[in-house]
Nucleic acid binder design. Structure first.
Lengths: 307, 307
DNA sequence: AAGTTCAATAAGTTCATCTTATGATCAATA
DNA sequence: TATTGATCATAAGATGAACTTATTGAACTT
């Protein structure tokens, strides 16, 4: 291992440029002997002469010229490391890997990504959409910087902040639009369509039903809210969806949306990240941006409740 | 100016690789606190976090990954600087800029360049052919590494070593081949063709004539020995050429070559270089190679002297 | 031959870096 | 829940590298 120092390279570069020990030393803000010694040291370590010392002037040897080029390369590269650091601390920059659960992603992301790129133009946003357990794993491994999931997560290593809470609404086929609103009990008697295993929304919907009484009579699993709504539209049953999904999912389906009577089922969506993440401070900022983006979306859902 | 050190980069790289302070410290042959401190110092200087310190494991931040890449770049580049140095000191390598006077170059260079590339395959030989004063200037400026000229040069800054000495021979037109050999005196009466001003060979030839008596009656200048011989062949006069030029220059000309009687005119050809040149040692080796190449050429000229 | 310029050397001081020892934090386990 | 083990941070003292000023030495100039 060669044991030259960046300091030596700096001195060397200065000497190569000035061709004069005194001037180079002055440029480096050190004394002439200090520079002489470091150059000598460098020549000894390299085992090669860098300068040809003539009485009046010094000149780079051929190897010295090669070395000077290389030294400039190295010094520039080191400077750039400093630049990179500065860029990454002044404002959020580089990559932000954000995980979102599937029952939020399609409705929240468009406005969130827009708001983020507006606030942090140099941010390279990577999105991962999958179920909560995987998101938490990836967060723990450092494969994600943050995740938007339903709270609570209750991992000691993770910080969490609430973003908003959203209601669940009932989706029935259009011809049942005027039928009486079922309560949790009567939902059990209907054909309830739910997301497949793994989705937290499935558990949340089920827990609402089970809150009052046993499990529903029959359950059919789908892999997305979109599919669920299409199934409902085809008369295969009823389902629950988060209110935020309503505008998108009911646009092309003939279904009726109904809010439940109090106590309405809701869930809290929040953002989580590793407590120790150096991005922690900036993630709190980002949470605020997400919160404001979501406000726009939740304002949208003020449709009259079917009571 | 960013004040990180290569040492810090080495420690950082080790830590990035091992993901463990203790192991990285061991790999660097230092104590764990020493490594901790240097990493901390580096983070402070850069103003950015490099590692996310979890209780059980540490992980590079995003910036840390970028920095690690950059650090590896820099370290590799520094290692290569050492390699370059090693390569350049083990054997002569790279560029050798060699100057040769015009009355030697065409006859000596073919065998010398061949011998040099055989001995130093990685040597990149640059040849400069011009008159002695220019060669000496360029040598002094560092634009040449060495020069082959007629001795003595007598520059205090330059080292010189004799390579060989060569006779001057008389060139007459073929039909004068059997005429009596002129002595220096009678040369003055003939039309003597010489090289133009500036060539040392001109001065050497003149000094031979003047040695015994005044300047020659008439002088015509040519710019190369080849031209001189062609002029002689055309019956325009006589000339002197160095013996080494005979095989090449008389091949296609109908001229007669005659050696002078003792004391024969000769000159000593030698090699010169800056005393302080770091190549000094290797230039002495090169001189030896040139010497041996020239031996082949001087053996060639053992033609019977016309007495 | 004397003076000037410039780099190398010498001697002493300062400051950075290392070491050992200890403390703090977190995770795993009884 | 307290304990233990692992891991990194901190503290304090020791070492050594790098710097300073002063001086010498060599080469070029006048």
């Amino acid at each position: 291992m060669i044991n030259i120092t960046l300091k030596q390279l700096r001195y060397f570069e200065a000497l190569a440029r000035h061709g004069h020990f005194g001037k180079a030393a002055e440029a480096c803000a050190i004394s002439q002997p200090a520079l002489s010694m470091q150059i000598k040291e460098m020549e000894e370590v390299l085992g090669a002469t860098l300068f040809e010392r003539g009485g009046r002037q010094i000149r780079l040897t051929h190897f010295g010229e090669i070395a000077a080029d290389r030294a400039r390369d190295i010094l520039r590269s080191a400077e750039e490391l400093g630049d990179l650091a500065r860029a990454s601390r002044d404002r959020l920059v580089g990559r932000l890997r954000i995980g979102v659960i599937p029952t939020i992603a399609p409705y929240l992301l468009p406005s969130v990504v827009g708001a983020l790129t507006k606030s942090y133009p140099e941010l390279d946003i990577h999105v991962r959409e999958t179920v909560t357990p995987k998101l938490i794993d990836e967060l723990d491994d450092g494969r994600l910087d943050t995740a938007i999931v339903a709270l609570p997560v209750s991992e000691a290593t993770l910080a969490e902040t609430a973003l908003f809470s959203e209601r669940f609404v009932l989706v029935r086929s259009a011809r049942e639009a005027n039928a009486p609103l079922p309560n949790a009990d009567s939902l059990r008697e209907m054909r309830l369509l739910l997301l497949e295993e793994g989705h937290c929304f499935r558990d949340q919907a089920l827990s609402f039903c089970n809150l009052q009484s046993g499990p529903p009579r029959e359950v059919l699993d789908a892999s997305s809210l979109s599919t669920l709504v299409q199934m409902v539209s085809a008369g295969m049953g009823v389902t629950l969806i988060p209110e935020m999904a309503v505008p998108v999912e009911t646009r092309s389906a003939s279904v009726a949306i109904s809010r439940f009577e109090a106590p309405e089922p809701t869930r809290t969506i929040g953002m989580v990240w590793r407590r120790r993440s150096p991005l922690a401070g900036q993630l709190a900022e980002i949470a605020e941006i997400v919160r404001r983006s979501a406000e726009g979306l939740t304002a949208l859902r003020e449709q009259p409740a079917i009571s």
